[in-house]
Amino acid sequence: MTAYILCLVLFSIGLYCALRKRNVVKIIIGIGIMEYAANFLFVLIGYRSGGRSPIYANDQVIKSMVDPLPQAVVAVAIVLNLSVTLLLVAIAIKLYEKYGTFDITKINDLKG
């Protein structure tokens, strides 16, 4: 269970960064760290001690395998997170062009 809690600590570090940092790029980095932690947790959940990777091979005796379903899910999730990061950085670059700063407290024209 320690591993799960360490995962959540990593998640919290990312959450702190995403919520408290003023720099736009740091916010995106924070979200990225949260996503890494969530992926890690998912694969950790699927681990079986003594298991091997879920690939058959003719010449080996296979006793038990780790859970393949979390791996399939995380494979899709990694790509989803990459897409969102791509879009966020594109918006951030254009924001710098228009506002001249990466400071989220200064990018505050819409108020009220």
Partner: peptide
């Protein structure tokens, strides 16, 4: 762009929470 960025950041944080929930639920 400002509105889209704020929306994207908050909504992505929401998505990661949902994904974390799915992971724990699968376990």
């Amino acid at each position: 762009l400002e509105g889209a960025f704020k929306y994207a950041v908050m909504s992505s944080i929401g998505s990661v929470f949902i994904f974390l929930g799915i992971a724990i639920l699968y376990s």
